[in-house]
């Protein structure tokens, strides 16, 4: 129950892009074509799902006040949380490097499609932001941390996929010259963020029963979203081919 709630909350309500503006730089820079957006989005899901649980372990057993108790009672007073930035970013940078090597070795096809994006990801705010939010929101277990990383990644993926599809379409419309490119992308993202705010009421309040119906509704909307998005992507693909 907890897991399902966190999963949908991280995808829709606390969406990385629309609620907290994380990873905006790559979101704006790599969203010109759907195919590259999909590559980067997949890499983000992957890296978030790996680094958030890693950093959770680090936070739980090294950094937080009293975390070093497992070394012996005399270490119980240490509070290393001021080191979290440097340790988190080190974990992320090494994990990205490691993932790159492993993927290159065992899945060359995936490497060629993700390859150029992986090094970029080390400095994507969404990745470090995922770990920092994990820390500040006190995620309770390792499983939940994994769930949080995965779901945040999926949320980011959906956002970049949607904006890339819109930007492919908008090339055929007559945007005022000074707004072309960056300006209109900002404003569209703002409008999309307002749309995503409507998900805010979904998981609040009610007893067990109403929550269940809420979730059913969510699952429905997700499948609808998928249905709605796929033809869109296909159409833009066709247009590209032409």
């Amino acid at each position: 129950m907890e897991h399902v709630e966190l999963f949908f909350k991280s995808i829709f309500i606390d969406n990385m892009v629309f609620a907290t503006f994380l990873g905006m730089c790559s979101y704006l820079a790599v969203s010109k074509k759907v195919s590259t957006a999909v590559g980067l989005g997949a890499a983000v899901i992957f890296v978030l799902a790996v680094t958030v649980p890693m950093n959770w372990l680090l936070d739980q057993y090294v950094l937080r006040p009293g975390a070093l108790t497992w070394l012996g009672a005399e270490y119980a007073d240490y509070d290393l949380s001021f080191l979290s930035f440097i340790l988190f970013i080190a974990t992320i940078a090494t994990m990205v490097q490691l993932v790159e090597i492993v993927v290159e070795k065992f899945a060359p096809a995936l490497y060629t499609s993700l390859g150029i994006f992986l090094p970029l990801i080390a400095v994507n705010c969404a990745i470090l932001g995922g770990s920092l939010f994990m820390q500040s929101r006190d995620i309770a277990t390792l499983g939940l941390a994994f769930n949080y990383g995965l779901a945040s990644g999926i949320g980011w993926f959906l956002a970049i996929l949607a904006i890339a599809a819109i930007r492919e379409k908008i090339r055929y419309s007559n945007v005022p010259a000074p707004l072309r490119g960056l300006g209109i992308t900002f404003i569209i993202t703002g409008l999309m963020a307002i749309g995503f705010m409507s998900f805010g009421g979904m998981l609040t309040g009610g007893d067990e029963k109403t929550e269940k119906t809420d979730e059913a509704a969510q699952i429905e909307t997700i499948t609808q979203d998928k249905d709605a998005e796929e033809p869109l992507a296909e159409v833009s693909q066709e247009l590209n081919n032409k």
Partner: peptide, 25 residues
């Protein structure tokens, strides 16, 4: 609310590029 930040920055970009045509994409 957070979405307005995006729209305000969008408007700043609009104003800046309308004043300096060389920046238009």
């Amino acid at each position: 609310l957070s979405p307005m930040a995006l729209i305000v920055v969008g408007i700043i970009i609009w104003v800046q590029r309308a004043r300096n045509k060389a920046l238009i994409e």
